[in-house]
Amino acid sequence: MALSVSYGERYGWTVVQVAGEVDISGVSALRERLQRLVTEGCLRMVVDISRVDFCDSTGFAVLVATRRMLSSRGGRLRLVLPGPETHTRKILQLFGIQRIFEVHDSVDDALADLRAAVLGEPAPAAAAAGADAADAVPRPREGNKAVAD
């Protein structure tokens, strides 16, 4: 399946939908789109890879590079992963995706705390707990400088 990348905005966050195969043949399109969004000022991004059928190390590297680019500009990146029993998720877990990224099971979960704030609702317990857990996860370091979300 060919790679497809589309995006929109929800609650002030850019939501990028990725579908298909993220491998050496299609990774440049993903890299270019994500970099362009960041350089255009999108500093809060949810990348939904729940419809990705395959993601190799080049795709993972693009996600890491995008996170670093956002972090260096004071931005944040949240990921929506494929289902727990999918091959793609298992591979990404081997790469250590949950130690590096704030991960969610759906776009709605990724934006639950924002939706609650916009609508004046109390933050969902799961979203609040997820945010605390994400803050406690060690983040990669560049040199002696910690990468901040």
Results as ranks from 00 to 15, higher is better:
L111P: 01
V52L: 05
R33P: 08
T66N: 02
G12F: 03
L3K: 09
I91P: 11
D53V: 14
T14E: 00
S28D: 15
R67Y: 07
S50Q: 07
V47A: 10
D113S: 15
R68P: 04
L94T: 13
A136G: 04
D109R: 01
V80E: 04
A131P: 08
T58Q: 08
L37P: 01
L37D: 01
E121L: 14
T66W: 00
L114W: 12
E142F: 15
P140T: 12
R10Q: 03
A125I: 13
A116L: 03
V103H: 04
D132Q: 13
A2K: 10
T86F: 12
P122V: 06
V118Y: 10
S57L: 11
A110H: 06
V147W: 14
G59P: 01
D56Q: 12
R44W: 04
R78C: 02
A146C: 09
M45I: 01
A148V: 14
A129P: 09
P124Y: 00
V38T: 01
S25L: 13
L3C: 09
A146S: 13
V137Q: 14
V27H: 12
P124E: 00
G120I: 02
L77V: 09
A19Y: 04
A128I: 06
F95Q: 02
S71I: 03
A125Q: 15
D132F: 13
M69K: 12
A117D: 11
V103S: 07
S28F: 13
R44N: 08
R141T: 15
S6F: 02
L119K: 09
Y7W: 13
T58M: 11
L77G: 07
V80I: 10
K90T: 15
S106T: 10
D109I: 00
V46C: 06
G96Y: 08
D23A: 14
W13Y: 05
T66P: 03
A112F: 10
E21W: 05
V52M: 04
L119G: 07
N144K: 14
E21F: 05
L94R: 12
S6D: 07
L77S: 05
H87A: 08
Y11V: 01
A136W: 03
G12D: 04
V52G: 04
Y11I: 00
P138A: 15
R44T: 09
M45V: 03
D132S: 15
I24C: 06
A133T: 11
L30K: 05
T66Y: 00
C55F: 08
E9S: 15
V62P: 00
A110I: 07
L63E: 01
A112D: 07
P140K: 12
R10K: 08
S6C: 06
G26H: 08
E40L: 09
P82K: 01
T58E: 11
F54P: 05
W13Q: 01
P138I: 15
S71P: 09
V38Y: 00
E21M: 07
K90L: 12
D48W: 01
G83N: 13
A117H: 08
L94I: 11
L94Q: 09
L30Q: 05
R51V: 06
D135Q: 14
V64L: 04
D135I: 04
A136C: 03
H104Q: 05
V107R: 04
A123C: 13
A136N: 04
S57D: 06
Y11E: 02
D48I: 02
V62N: 00
E40W: 05
R68T: 06
V103L: 10
V137E: 10
F101K: 00
G12A: 08
L3A: 10
T58C: 09
V147E: 15
E40V: 03
A133Y: 13
